[in-house]
Write a protein that binds this DNA or RNA. Structure first.
Lengths: 194, 194
DNA sequence: GTCTATAATGGGATAGAC
DNA sequence: GTCTATCCCATTATAGAC
């Protein structure tokens, strides 16, 4: 990973973000040093500061851009039946969780490491994502095809359940992604009383 | 919180554990210093080492004793119908999560901060707790009162869902503990196809 | 059992050369 | 844009006085 002056300059930015995401997810924000990140990228620590003003901004950028991507990639078609929308949400959430497990885990776990300002911003994005699911449950109840005891709590319960995939899923393990989606769909349908 | 020589010696041990548990849960193991823990207790940093050989052992003790308590407090009566056992488990898990939210959160989140040896030990305890739930699902299927697409995965999904309470529950908030149990029981029943 | 003091190391961040 | 070198401060852990 050694590096001579100036080579690969154009791709270092993404590499810094990749390394930070991976290390933060594996060891926790507070446990990772800028020196470790630099070593993973193959540069010296000073070079990192060409890409981020400080460590906190690096974390906030990772979380913000993950939430931005989630929100911009998610396409809800509210003209569809609620059960179709729910299954689409499930498929989307699991696909994302398995494609970018570190970003998902990080966004779930390191909110607490954000400065108050960054926390407010990112919690707001997170809330919009939760609300997207809650709207589907509301539609399902209006259609009479779902029934939950408390809509907000059911939303949080479903998000926790789905995000939990990142805790046990292993690429190349017992189950492939399609199978995981099918199993969770069974579970989720029951949870919302469908 | 200042302290003169020798006072309160007999209760410092528990205070150290309380402070460490609370700080680790709020800020993450790696982000908390022994100085912060000492300040919270009201002693100087050197005094901590009368109660723990090092910081890693402090974390491991917290996680190990939490899991030990969980496993020793949980009383499963396998002569009961599986749905009764499941509801008892739910009640137990939520009661514990709301009584010791920091310990639950910590045991869920800081496994990654353990040394490999400590990780093995505590993951084993954790697995025994998960297996207790899985056994109830197996009994429910045998009785024909539950139906899940994949028992191991349903177990993990339920644990994630239940442990998620610690993410949003606030003492004195909209819902009291009894109400939370009732709502989750509705959700869980659906999830297991009962 | 707790204090003060200190050792040894590593932390985030910056300056200036190239 | 990256390097080397450095500043300054925090870190874990220990030693020895009380």
């Amino acid at each position: 990973m050694a590096r001579t002056h100036g080579s690969k300059a154009e791709i270092t930015g993404p590499l810094v973000r990749d390394a930070a995401r991976s290390l933060f997810a594996r060891h926790g924000y507070g446990a990772v040093s800028m020196r470790q990140i630099a070593a993973e990228v193959g540069v010296q620590v000073g070079a990192l500061y060409a890409y981020t003003p400080d460590k906190q901004a690096l974390l906030a950028d990772l979380l913000r851009s993950h939430m931005d991507e989630l929100l911009s990639e998610w396409r809800d078609d509210s003209s569809q039946p609620a059960l179709v929308r729910l299954k689409d949400f499930l498929r989307f959430h699991i696909a994302t969780s398995l494609k970018r497990p570190e970003a998902v885990f990080l966004s779930y776990m390191e909110l607490r490491s954000l400065s108050p300002e960054n926390f407010r911003d990112i919690a707001r994005l997170r809330r919009r994502y939760e609300d997207a699911l809650e709207a589907i449950l509301a539609a399902g109840e209006a259609e009479g095809v779902m029934s939950v005891p408390d809509r907000r709590l059911a939303t949080m319960a479903l998000i926790s359940m789905l995000t939990g995939v990142t805790n046990w899923y292993r690429e190349g393990g017992r189950l492939d992604q399609e199978r995981v989606v099918a199993i969770y769909w069974d579970l989720v349908r029951g949870t919302v009383g469908a």
